[in-house]
Nucleic acid binder design. Structure first.
Lengths: 174, 174
DNA sequence: GTGCGATGATGGATGTCATCCACTATGGGG
DNA sequence: CCCCATAGTGGATGACATCCATCATCGCAC
């Protein structure tokens, strides 16, 4: 049984195989980390009704922090297709977590609000998500965690979008 | 048009929205980076017939570097379900890239070999994969790249499996 | 006022992939 | 011989990303 819950090979040793260039490839390790992180995260978040992916958590937290926010803005920060975002929000509406109103000043757009039920869930979700992240990255020392956060924020700003001004430790990298 | 090719919101500003705890959450940034990286990678790798995910590339490179390797060993390092790995290898067999033989000393297991065609593809794939990774992480300075690699390797060893002894810069972290 | 292109949201089609389960042939140990 | 574990395989299912088309709305130019 490997660290990730999958059976490990039991009839042959594998400590001397070569990973070829993968052994020194940032993208291989980055994607591998994401696989492990996703699995761990999905397990943690399945305790509440928000299983699978960051989408619902992003909607919940960002709507909480920004009542009236646009679906398209959330989609933007979460790197989610507009159409997929609409479906996700529809699901959360059916779950009784959010509600939508037409923006009176721009009737093509919607404003998102949490329901009281959604608000209750926020506290839980914050705790679960923070603990999961802390636990996953606890194998790193404090300095490495700080460096990793800084580096990942840089990558986010350069590959996704500039971070809002209110994000702590954000540096103008654009 | 945002950095990732998706339309960005055009009728409202969004530089002052709050990301709530996501703004300081390692797992959010890690997963966001992976989304961006996956997209970039998939674009690069679609130039050759290995689109989508690291699976095929891992099979190709690790079989090249370790002729006769077990599917289960590749699955182990690539964090892939056995059943999914079997389907993937079947696909690559049909593409004429690999072939399988029964391991004579352990007849439950298979040995994987590349075909001449598979071998030809290795050179291309190596170049593409290396360039994609280099390009994606080029936004970081040299020190940050080195730190990121070291940190990600630590995470791999702690969350996935110990790295083989032949991997450069590997440290015993178990 | 009208027309045109852009915008935000929505629905649909499609492909891909992970997960989980069941099964078969094989191997090792009691 | 029996039992349990192992490696590989096939199937079912659910989730999700992507891409496309559509509609209502908006802003701008003529």
């Amino acid at each position: 049984m490997a660290r990730n819950g999958r059976p490990e090979p039991r009839t042959i040793g594998y400590s001397d195989v070569s990973l070829d260039i993968l052994g020194g490839l940032l993208s291989f390790y980055a994607r591998s980390m994401a696989i492990a992180l996703n699995r761990d995260y999905d397990q943690a978040i399945s305790e509440v009704e928000l299983a699978h992916g960051h989408g619902k958590v992003s909607v919940l937290l960002m709507t909480h922090a920004n009542p009236g926010i646009r679906p398209s803005v959330i989609a933007h920060f979460a790197q989610k297709d507009r159409s997929a975002m609409a479906k996700l929000i529809d699901q959360m509406k059916r779950q009784g977590l959010v509600e939508q109103r037409v923006d009176s000043g721009e009737r093509r757009a919607h404003e998102l609000y949490l329901t009281p039920r959604g608000e209750e869930l926020v506290v839980q979700v914050r705790t679960i998500v923070q603990e999961q992240s802390d636990r996953f990255f606890a194998v790193l020392d404090r300095q490495d965690r700080a460096d990793l956060l800084r580096i990942l924020m840089t990558l986010y700003e350069r590959h996704v979008t500039p971070l809002p001004a209110n994000v702590p430790d954000r540096k103008a990298t654009t």
